[in-house]
Design a protein around this nucleic acid. Structure first.
Lengths: 349, 349
DNA sequence: ATCGATTGCGCAAACCATTGCAGGAAGCTT
DNA sequence: AAGCTTCCTGCAATGGTTTGCGCAATCGAT
């Protein structure tokens, strides 16, 4: 195979009759080196396609310019959007991203962390699994002097910057919107009680109801465990078969909302006129299904960008005790599924 | 701040009064080393949490155990599924995956390749962009002695193993299915002419029509350039407004099919009874929309697995001239959107 | 002519693990 | 007792780059 032989600083030095250190410094335009020398060395390097041996550089500097990124699930619209933002941002700053997934299983997450640490990433971006209630595996990073930035699904058990979405406010706005559309009995298909985001959204839901003096009922709140379409379908059925059924449903995420929509369609219950439905996350599907699903956009790409920028900043400054919380605002995206009373052109934003 | 000081072989050697080489060999249970020594060294290493400096090891071995992975788009159901398979497989074999995206732009792809090469991945997994008509950036890899494995979207301009889906057969089966359901005038929203997969699918479409003596028409074939929902919508409109409109549409991908479904719904044209629709790729959405979209499953996860396994194999054997083509069979997934005549329970698979 | 500053460059150590080779020690055979 | 294994261990080089420090030469100022 035509393996191009790579030349090293040593080769340059030998050929040009200078020392290795001079060659090294010349390539970096070090002020100690004469312009002529710099020019010669650079020309020679160029001509012979000199590329520094990155492995040697990494070794010398104890840096890899690789960042670890762990998400619960890779095949997931929101997370892949975040990853996309992270990768693009990292690239801009000369970093690569090493991706791994926890499948929402703590042991997988721990292993992923270990692998990342072993392969010497310079820092870690993580959205924790549902099972992650303590954070020894994350503390390891900090102890090794490698910063961690959490995003979206976070834990307070380690001190690190956190980039999150204002789940409370997003939920509040979603429910407020339902109220403004004239819905009176608003149900919530919520997520697990151990997961902070779920609790925040549930809190937003409740606060909005209270602030607007709306009817509430424990029966209108259902706990989704798996957060999938099927749960949406089943809980919707359950909600509508009880007495005093709701006339609108706020779902923890779009996927659940799709299940709801599916059930309603099967039962020929009109959306949005008989029942309003709103999701969360603004998946690609939300704009594609009909009726279009109103949802709350979480700005995943931006979240990836910001978290990555923050991490790079920490690495550069060797900061390990930063605890900044960056909260992104959500965007209410109004589509047909909640266009109940108001017939005027839909507002977005 | 509590940076644990990492200990090195040197420390072990000093503390135990042996040489560095003995320490190194003891940890590897080298036969030259006395059992007692091995036990002592291991105990000491364990106690002080010795971890070999991976950077030094990489440097010494010129290996990183990192694999590069480049896809056109990250936020994409099929590709994220492939990535998921690749990551899980890599992890099992002690490799990490470095992910990057080309956005279907050649220059981005080239840059991504360069970055990957510079950061010294041990090999590359790539699905090329629509714009990639030559492959100098890929040849670079081979020249550096780093194997490349292509998957899904491939080019014949470099010699490398390729993991692909049998697009021809998948398309053939999809169209055959439409024919069997009694559709008579089958249209095809195809992809770009420069893209191999598109051509294969179009070929499968045509062959199926020919083999079953079906009516054909140039007017029933439309070229999608962006491969999005909008194109599906517009071309569907165009198809149905011409004379001799089709009664079934085979779409290059599910996203296009969703556009088609949307138009049909707006126009209140019944699917599958007036028009049958089938997609390709079996996106998550396909099972969620209603009517459920029939599609062709490409086994993305498996593709990721296989491509990664192949790459690791090449790396281990230092093979650079392998040109094996691994072709995965597709799965026809039948849902409501094509259930025209036949009312019996739907078969899947 | 001397001193001091400045400029340009090289020596060598350091980073850490790996490994070929040499050699010492102990135990065995003749 | 000399010679021969067998076992165990250490020396030292290797990989490529970076960097602190020191040295030499040059130049200007006194």
């Amino acid at each position: 195979m035509t393996e191009k032989k790579k030349i090293t600083l040593k080769d340059i030095a030998r050929e040009l009759g200078i020392s290795i250190s001079t060659a090294s410094r010349a390539l970096k335009e070090h002020p100690d080196i004469a312009d002529d020398t710099i020019k010669t060395v650079k020309a020679f390097a160029e001509k012979h396609h000199y590329v520094p041996n990155i492995l040697a550089v990494n070794f010398r500097k104890s840096r890899t310019y690789n960042l670890g990124l762990i998400v619960p699930e890779l095949v997931h619209h929101f997370f892949s959007t975040v990853i996309s933002g992270a990768i693009d941002t990292a690239k801009k700053h000369g970093y690569n991203i090493l991706v791994s997934q926890s499948n929402d299983i703590l042991s997988d997450e721990t292993v992923a962390c270990r692998t990342m640490l072993a392969s010497s990433v310079d820092g870690l971006l993580i959205s924790i699994s549902n099972e992650t209630l303590e954070a020894a595996h994350l503390t390891n990073f900090i102890e090794e002097g490698k910063p961690v930035v959490q995003f979206d699904k976070i834990t307070d058990h380690i001190q690190s910057p956190k980039v999150i979405v204002d789940d409370f406010e997003g939920a509040y706005q979603a429910v407020k919107h339902l109220i403004e559309q004239g819905y009176k009995k608003i149900a919530h298909l919520r997520g697990r009680r151990e997961v902070k985001n779920s609790n925040e959204r549930a809190r937003g839901y409740q606060q909005a109801l209270i602030d607007h003096n709306m009817e509430t009922s424990e029966n209108w709140i259902k706990d989704c465990m798996a957060i999938n379409e099927e749960e949406g379908y089943n809980f919707c059925k359950e909600l509508l078969s009880g007495d005093n059924p709701p006339d609108a449903i706020f779902c923890i995420t779009d996927l659940v909302a799709f299940g709801v929509l599916k059930y309603l369609k099967e039962e020929k219950i009109a959306v949005p006129h008989q029942i309003g439905v709103i999701g969360f996350s603004n998946w690609k599907l939300a704009e594609i299904v009909s009726p279009g699903l109103s949802s709350v956009d979480q700005h995943g790409y931006e979240m990836g960008e910001i978290a990555t920028l923050k991490l790079i900043e920490l690495i550069k400054n060797n900061e390990l005790d930063n605890q900044e919380v960056i909260e992104l605002k959500t965007n209410l995206i109004i589509r047909e599924s909640t266009a109940n009373k108001i017939e005027k052109p839909l507002t977005i934003g």
